[in-house]
Design a protein around this nucleic acid. Structure first.
Length: 400
RNA sequence: UCCGGGGUGGCGAAAUUGGCAGCCGCGCUUGACUGUUAAUCAAGUGCCCGAAAGGGCGUGUGGGUUCGAGUCCCACCCCCGGAG
């Protein structure tokens, strides 16, 4: 157990039901919440320069312990002045612990595991052993055997110098049975204690640590996990693990889990999400979200748009856009929509021009930033429910 | 005009030399993507009719040989190269 002073101030300005608007005060500046966090897994938001990311208004990005550990290595980054300096980002930074990458190494993506497809482009089955001490795996880069446990993860994150470190956990698969999920969740709790012990002794004083709540889809396990993580006095809590087979189940698990977390703590929903998921999470009191969807979809020719009937996606690669002179989304304030037509973006996407991925990434990140910015304003004005209903009925976040 | 080479899906091309035409790739269509091993992956795709099962038609054109022809023979059309 830790009894250190808090390294992360969290101020709540306004509440509406469980939803709240406020800010995280990190060593690298404030982060207005609710916030969406772009992924900079390998130290870069794919296709963008971090100057672009700051220009879009983001105050927090997420880097990854596992990938940076594999290359270029924590020592290298430490020698070069830490991750902020290495990548040229002076705002807040959170690093994921590597727990999810073990899952990914074994199963590919979340959807691959749920649907029983053994991993699209991933899933080379590089996990050798998951044991109490930690995880033995084979590097996807050069095949060498590597090891990561709670201490190693925290050591890497200390060297990276993230403002917020995530505790090392095991992301329990959807297909794991209840017994496995229970014992894995308990091990994650023991790993959290070891993370905090290591961090208390060696970690940067200004670095905050979030613990991760597991428990799969089981209410009692989620409750036990929420209590166990809360009891450690972490600076914040993250909800992890696979949350169910489909969206309704995911929202159910979320609705059951979120209220179990201490109300005053910052809450991070890991790996989610899509626009409706963000609003569902915000309604339940989630403060920060990270997700691969906006940036990955952009690289696959898919734009986010106020289209709830098509999961807020607009497929720009379809031939219907070939002669469409309108913008991606009417009234969108992003730099792409300010200049370009659907016809041009369609052409670029089909041509697999790198510029297409960049322009769509700018748009998609803007969409989510505007979505959460709108939620922040709505909560402060006491109109979040109306805002959510408007977005869910197809009103653009920048118009709401 | 003569000599030589060549005409196969939307495109580049295969076809074990007379044995289920179109392998493979591009393009196109559809699907997937939620703490990023994904600017990726999966499925389909000769043409026509049909919702489908299915049916019909297909290797420049027209004949011929053969149980069977993209492949062999004859004539013609077109393209490329060379010679006049």
């Amino acid at each position: 157990m830790r009894s250190d002073p808090r390294r992360l101030e969290f101020e709540i300005d306004a509440r509406e039901g469980a939803a709240r608007a406020g800010r995280l005060l990190t060593a690298h500046g404030p982060v207005a919440t609710p916030a969406f966090i772009p992924l900079a897994t390998k130290g870069a938001v794919r296709t963008l320069d971090l100057g672009d990311v700051a220009g879009l208004g983001f105050e927090l990005i997420l880097g990854n312990t596992f990938h940076l550990f594999i290359s270029p290595g924590a020592e290298r980054i430490a020698e070069l002045g830490g991750l902020h300096r290495f990548i040229g980002w002076d705002r807040a930074l959170i690093t994921d612990s590597g727990g999810f990458q073990v899952f990914s190494l074994a199963h590919g993506g979340v959807a691959d595991e749920i649907k029983g497809r053994r991993g699209g482009a991933g899933a080379s089955g590089g996990v050798l052993e998951i044991a109490e001490r930690g995880v033995r795996f084979r590097s996807y880069l050069d095949g060498t055997e590597r090891f990561m446990g709670p201490e190693e993860s925290m050591d890497v994150q200390a060297k990276l110098g993230a403002d917020i470190a995530l505790a090392f956990d095991e992301c329990t698969p959807f297909h794991a049975d209840r017994d496995y999920t229970a014992s894995s969740t308990e091990r994650t709790h023991r790993w959290l204690e070891r993370c905090l012990d290591w961090h208390g002794e060696h970690g940067p004083p200004e670095q905050a640590v979030f613990g991760i709540v597991q428990g799969g889809v089981h209410e009692d396990l989620r409750r036990e996990s929420a209590q166990a993580v809360s009891a450690t006095g972490v600076d914040g809590l993250a909800i992890g693990g696979t949350l169910g087979r489909d969206k309704p189940e995911m929202h159910g698990v979320l609705a059951m889990t979120a209220p179990l977390l201490p109300p005053e703590a910052p809450k991070h929903l890991l790996g989610i999400g899509e626009p409706d998921d963000l609003l569902a999470g915000i309604a339940l009191g989630i403060d920060i979200f990270d997700c691969a969807v906006p940036t990955r979809l952009a690289r696959h020719g898919m734009a986010l748009a106020p289209l709830p009937a098509s999961r807020f996606r607009f497929d720009l690669t379809k031939s219907g856009s070939a002669t469409d002179e309108g913008p991606l989304a009417e009234g969108c304030p992003c730099p792409t929509c300010a200049v370009h037509t659907r016809a041009y973006l369609h052409y670029l996407s089909r041509a697999e021009a790198p510029t297409a991925a960049r322009l769509l990434t700018l748009h998609n990140l803007t969409f989510l930033e505007r979505l959460v910015a709108g939620a922040r304003e709505a909560i402060k004005a006491g109109g979040f429910n109306g805002y959510r209903a408007a977005v869910m009925s197809g009103t653009a976040p920048w118009a709401a």
